[in-house]
Every structure is written in structure tokens, then in C-alpha cells.
Computed example of a mutant assay.
Amino acid sequence: MSPAPCVVAVLGAADAGEALTVQYAAYLSEARRYGTTEIPPLRESVAELAADLQRPDVRAFGAWTGPRLIGSVRLRGCDTGGGVGTGTGCVELARYSVAPDAQGHGVGRALMERAHAELAAGDVTWLVTGARSDENLRLYRRAGYEETGRLTDSAGVELLRMERLAPR
């Protein structure tokens, strides 16, 4: 049975506890896949998440079904002389999370579309994801992301860096 349609809206610091609960639940499957709970999204605290949501260069969105938060995503600006929405900016798509029981029902796609709507033509969005995270890789490739490099995180997990140029 699919969940009720979700509403995507701005995520604020007051939502940090709920967002962290969803993030932990979503990233536990990644931890199992890679055999470590030391991945950065599982080490973030409520205070760190709330502080991130209050940064002026962060825009965050949550997906709610009724009163329940079922997903979230953050855009973190990495200003290269432009900024998000200018067509010359660079932004990280970070901590993209959907509750396990809500996955596969378009919640992630709705969050990504809302995040991408913040971008101007020519803005570059980048993200990192596990090299063996096949479901994530399919979603990102469908959204126009391409691999631009590989790295290893502090937990020893091989990651792919992917980028997407906002259409002109």
C-alpha cells in the first residue's frame, strides 16, 4: 500500500529531531551495505543538524505525509563567485533521506525536484553516494547526475562524486 501523497516544504531548525530520525533510519541500510556505522550521516547530532539548517547558505526541504516527516534534503552552497540560483553557483545536495517505509513511492523524486527548483540555469549541483548503492545511483542518473570522481570517506567507504548542470 502506498503512503498518502506527501507535501514538500521548507525544513527548519525546529524540525531537526524528526529529520535526524529519518536520516538515521534511511542511512542504516547504507551502514549495513558497507559494514560500518561510522558513515558521516549516522554520526551527525541533532545540534549539528539544527545548526546546519540555520546557516545562511543552506536551504533544506522536508516531505511530510500528514504530520509525519518522511524525507528531507539539504542544499549547501559552495559559493564560487555566484551562489545558488544565480546560474554561476555550485551547491551540494546533502543528507538526502527518505524513511525506509516511504521509499519507492516518489518521495525522493519530489524532494529532488523541489531542491532542483532552487537552481538557476547553469548552477552545478554535486553529491556523493556510495559506489555500491545501486538504487541511489539509478535515481541520481535518471535526474541527470554524472560521475565526476571517486573518493573514500572517513569510514573507508568508497564514494562516487556526481554532478549535474541545471538546464539552460
Rank of each mutant, 00 (worst) to 15 (best):
M1G: 13
S2P: 13
P3W: 02
P3F: 05
A4Q: 14
P5F: 02
P5D: 05
C6N: 01
V8Y: 04
V8H: 10
V8L: 11
A9M: 11
V10S: 14
G12D: 15
A13P: 14
A13N: 04
A13Y: 02
A14N: 10
A14M: 11
D15E: 13
A16T: 02
A16M: 01
G17I: 03
A19E: 07
T21W: 00
T21A: 15
Y24C: 06
Y24W: 09
A26E: 08
A31W: 00
R32C: 05
R33H: 02
T36I: 07
T36D: 12
T37G: 15
E38M: 02
I39A: 03
I39M: 09
P40M: 01
P41F: 11
P41Y: 08
P41I: 11
L42W: 04
R43L: 15
R43W: 08
S45W: 07
S45P: 12
A47E: 15
E48V: 12
L49D: 03
L49M: 14
A50R: 08
D52L: 14
R55E: 07
P56K: 01
D57R: 09
V58N: 09
R59F: 09
A60D: 10
F61W: 14
F61K: 02
F61L: 14
A63I: 12
T65K: 03
T65E: 13
T65A: 15
R68V: 12
I70E: 11
I70N: 00
S72Q: 13
V73D: 00
R74E: 11
R76N: 06
G77V: 10
D79A: 12
D79E: 10
G87E: 08
T88C: 08
E92W: 04
L93K: 12
R95M: 07
R95P: 09
Y96I: 10
S97L: 07
A99H: 15
A99E: 12
A99S: 14
G104F: 09
G104T: 02
H105Q: 15
H105W: 08
G106K: 06
G106C: 04
R109F: 02
R109Q: 03
L111V: 06
M112P: 00
E113S: 13
R114T: 15
A115S: 10
A115V: 10
A117F: 00
L119H: 06
L119P: 02
A120N: 10
A121D: 05
A121L: 03
G122A: 12
T125M: 15
T125H: 00
L127P: 06
V128G: 11
T129D: 02
R132P: 03
S133I: 01
D134W: 03
N136I: 01
L139G: 01
Y140P: 04
R141T: 15
R141C: 08
R142C: 00
R142D: 00
R142W: 00
R142V: 01
A143D: 00
G144F: 06
Y145D: 07
E146K: 08
T148F: 06
R150T: 13
R150K: 11
L151F: 12
D153E: 08
S154D: 15
G156R: 03
V157P: 02
E158H: 03
L159N: 07
E163R: 13
L165T: 14
A166E: 12
A166C: 06
P167R: 13
R168C: 01
R168V: 09
